[in-house]
């Protein structure tokens, strides 16, 4: 659990309720685009994409009782596929955990918290190729802050946030983050240094 004490000026752009509403909307969009829950697999990208994927799976199961939420959600680690490995501090990769059904011929929805340069998603697409052959791959993100460096776009977006590249977007999820000891869900923009 990371206790956040804001060291720089920041403003909250999504609170707990905003995030929940956005995820509910995305869940319905996913079902609508897929014409139901058939063959859906949600793969969250560590760290914060995974809890969002779990929540989305829960919402899909709530909308379609035939769905077992835990059976359609997985985690896809992209660390080893990044293009900036030699410039970044090395960290141990997170586990990749696929649903038992695998991803062959499935509709894989990648879930991440923030879409920025697009490089993480590029790495995720490479990682998927080594694991199997989905019928299609879609992308859902909580926040799209712009500044893309690759020809990648999200299919489902919780909120489009115009930002300057000097600002930082922080997504905090109760699974990992807290403020003053209280678990928290929020999205904040921090002013650049």
């Amino acid at each position: 659990m990371t206790d956040v004490t804001a060291p720089v000026p920041s403003r909250v752009v999504l609170n707990h309720a905003d995030i929940d509403r956005a995820l509910t909307r995305i869940a319905h969009e996913i079902l609508e685009a897929n014409k139901g829950s058939q063959d859906l697999v949600l793969l969250g990208i560590p760290r914060r994409g995974y809890p969002l994927a779990v929540r989305l799976a829960g919402k899909i199961a709530a909308a379609d009782p035939s769905v077992d939420a835990s059976a359609i959600v997985g985690q896809l680690d992209v660390t080893m596929f990044r293009d900036d490995l030699s410039h970044q501090p090395a960290r141990p990769p997170y586990p990749t955990k696929l649903p038992l059904s695998g991803i062959d011929n499935k509709v894989v929805v990648l879930i991440d918290d923030v879409l920025y340069s697009g490089r993480t998603i590029r790495a995720a697409l490479d990682a998927i190729v080594d694991l199997g052959r989905p019928r299609s791959v879609r992308l859902a993100v909580l926040v799209d802050r712009g500044h893309r460096e690759l020809p990648i776009r999200a299919d489902h977006v919780g909120k489009n946030l115009p930002t300057s590249s000097s600002e930082k977007v922080r997504v905090r999820v109760e699974e990992f983050d807290s403020v003053n000891g209280q678990p928290i869900n929020e999205v904040v923009i921090e002013a650049g240094a």
Binding site: Q88, P89, R91, D112, Y116, R119
Partner: peptide, 10 residues
């Protein structure tokens, strides 16, 4: 910090 640097290169 690790998560931060990860996102900054997102």
């Amino acid at each position: 910090d690790a998560a931060r640097s990860e996102k900054e290169n997102n």
